[in-house]
């Protein structure tokens, strides 16, 4: 698919003798909302790491916005507009919440040369968006797990990405909080941000995704309309067993 924002072709990754990913093809069009599901250890996070440059894939190719990403350092991919949040929040623990957001603004947004933004106002706006208003001067150690997930998401959003990969941004959140984050992601999507959501909470994935991709044991076994994909016998077998 040539018009895709993200085009993964034949991607493979091994850890020693263990094949983590094999011949993954995935194309995501600009503006799409894609859900990526799969049992634990199926390679979802490895795929995210290969796309975002944290890991190097051995075979295949990742193209983003028409550019080949092979061998490109993660920070350059982020600058091109490919941002991700981490499954386990990884805040900069010696920096305040606001300063955590300053890093991507200084190193990504300012680097794009689209003029300077008012840092403090922008940070406040991001914190407001994820529901962390008023926590800007706290250290991450003072946040709850849920708040740390929100910070993780806010930091990825601060880079003003074209494609946001949210790696289990909702794990451990309450019903209401899941809805809050969903609303937030849909709003971002309305503003033109393409989003890949990795999630175990099926309610959230089904509600959010326009398309659902299923990974099982390092292979893509389904890709299509969510309602059809979850009725796919192979997917049922992967989740529920024989």
């Amino acid at each position: 698919m040539s018009g895709a924002l993200l085009d993964v072709a034949g991607l493979g990754k091994r850890f020693g003798g263990f094949v983590a990913l094999e011949a993954i093809d995935l194309a995501v069009a600009a503006g799409e909302r894609v859900g990526l599901i799969g049992p634990n250890g199926s390679g979802k996070s490895t795929l995210v790491n290969c796309i975002s440059g944290t890991l190097r894939n051995e075979t295949g190719q990742v193209r983003f916005a028409g550019k080949v990403m092979d061998g490109m350092a993660a920070h350059r991919r982020t600058r091109l507009g490919l941002a991700r949040s981490f499954q386990l929040p990884r805040p900069f623990h010696s920096l305040t919440v606001t300063e955590n957001l300053l890093i991507p603004i200084e190193y990504v947004v300012h680097q794009r040369g689209e003029g300077r933004v008012d840092l403090i106002a922008r940070c406040a706006e991001l914190l407001e968006m994820v529901g962390l208003a008023g926590r800007g001067d706290d250290l991450p150690a003072g946040l709850t797990q849920v708040e740390m997930r929100k910070l993780e998401l806010a930091r990825a959003m601060a880079a003003e990405p074209r494609l946001l990969i949210a790696d289990e941004a909702m794990a451990g959140l309450s019903h209401q909080e899941v809805d809050d984050i969903l609303t937030l992601l849909v709003r971002l999507n309305d503003q033109g941000v393409t989003i890949i959501m990795i999630e175990h909470i099926m309610r959230a994935v089904m509600q959010f995704s326009q398309r659902l991709v299923v990974l099982v044991a390092g292979r893509k076994i389904a890709d299509g309309v969510p309602e059809e994909v979850i009725r796919n016998p192979e997917v049922e077998r992967a989740y529920l067993g024989e």
Binding site: G53, T54, A73, F92, S94, E99, Y107, A158
Partner: peptide, 25 residues
């Protein structure tokens, strides 16, 4: 400076710094 912020990000979490656009190397 921005440099100092980048240094702090590296000290705290190099992977996250890289993902936030910091050219760590």
């Amino acid at each position: 400076s921005r440099l100092g912020d980048g240094f702090a990000a590296i000290r705290d979490d190099e992977l996250a710094a890289e993902a936030s656009g910091v050219p760590t190397l």
